[in-house]
């Protein structure tokens, strides 16, 4: 079926990605703050489902806050998102270098030396930029697992962007219902590659289980932990957050071991997921404005 032309202009349409590339190559750097500011306002009003999702997530993170405060926080989240995608595009197209510091350098070094590992991250800060920086710094290829984009053209554009920003060291694999992906990832880890997975949002048809975040029930993907269990590979939680204008902080946490020595498979996975949810909760609490979860994560309370 022919793709309707107007889908290009939908919020997740390819037009905006192409326009972003245009902006990065044409807007003087000293006018970017103003441009980002106005576009944030535009998308804050246009991207209604995303705005509602962020707002509903923020209500759980900040239960005592007023509606207006959480609306302002939602706007700030959109603003951070705008900056991170601008920076990622700037890195990809103009080769812009960013200032970054590392928290948990020892874990990052361990990850860089690991003979095959899982890099567990979240839709937080500039994960695309983080993967590219890591791949370049340690000279290690990364296989990044992503949720497929709803728009095919946008997906193709993003793939090309990621692979270009990682100078060929970042390969994209899509998280679909296909059974081939887990085997492909297992083989990649066994071959010494690093597999990057976002573990803060379940994907339809992909394996997931319930855990707790901010005292609420959420469903998170358990695939990374199953993979860690089968491959006997360490799982490194890693985040990259924006700390200021063109400044980032890479935050690495101690590896999670989900191995056979930890007991039965289900027990080991449950324990590892509990560990991961605690790390994720701490990160979100500290950097709520950079948790780009544009779908509601928390399940409605069971009554």
């Amino acid at each position: 079926m022919a793709v309707r032309w107007w889908r290009r202009f939908a919020v997740r349409g390819v037009f905006w990605r192409q326009y972003l590339d245009f902006g990065v190559t044409n807007v003087p750097f000293y006018l970017v703050p103003m441009t980002v500011f106005f576009w944030t306002i535009f998308f804050f009003f246009v991207a209604i489902p995303a705005r509602r999702a962020v707002l509903s997530n923020l209500r759980i993170i900040h239960p005592g806050a007023s509606r207006l405060t959480n609306y302002l926080r939602t706007w700030l989240t959109f603003h951070h998102f705008a900056w991170t995608i601008v920076d990622a595009a700037d890195h990809k197209i103009a080769g812009r270098e960013f200032a970054y510091e590392v928290e948990g350098e020892e874990y990052l070094t361990q990850l860089g030396r690991a003979p095959g590992a899982i890099l567990l991250t979240a839709h937080m800060g500039s994960y695309d930029l983080g993967a590219a920086i890591f791949a370049q710094r340690y000279g290690r290829p990364i296989r990044m697992v992503r949720v497929p984009e709803a728009d095919e053209q946008t997906a193709a554009h993003l793939d090309a962007s990621l692979e270009r920003s990682g100078a060929g060291a970042v390969k994209v694999a899509y998280n679909t219902s296909s059974m081939a992906l887990p085997l492909e990832l297992l083989n990649a880890i066994r071959a010494g590659e690093i597999v990057s997975i976002q573990g803060d949002r379940p994907v339809t048809h992909a394996s997931q289980r319930e855990t707790r975040l901010f005292g609420e029930v959420v469903r998170l993907p358990d695939g990374p932990f199953m993979l860690g269990f089968v491959a006997e590979a360490p799982i490194f939680p890693l985040f990259i957050v924006r700390t200021g204008y063109h400044h980032y902080r890479i935050i690495a946490r101690p590896p999670i071991h989900c191995s056979r020595s930890a007991g039965e498979r289900d027990v080991a996975i449950a324990r590892a997921m509990e560990n991961w949810s605690q790390i994720l909760e701490d990160m979100i609490a500290a950097h709520w404005g950079q948790w780009f979860s544009f779908v509601p994560i928390f399940l409605p309370a069971k009554r």
Partner: peptide, 13 residues
């Protein structure tokens, strides 16, 4: 020489 200063970017903007 790098575009790392927020003061510069926001101030001139």
């Amino acid at each position: 020489r790098a575009q790392w200063s927020g003061l510069e970017a926001y101030g001139v903007c």
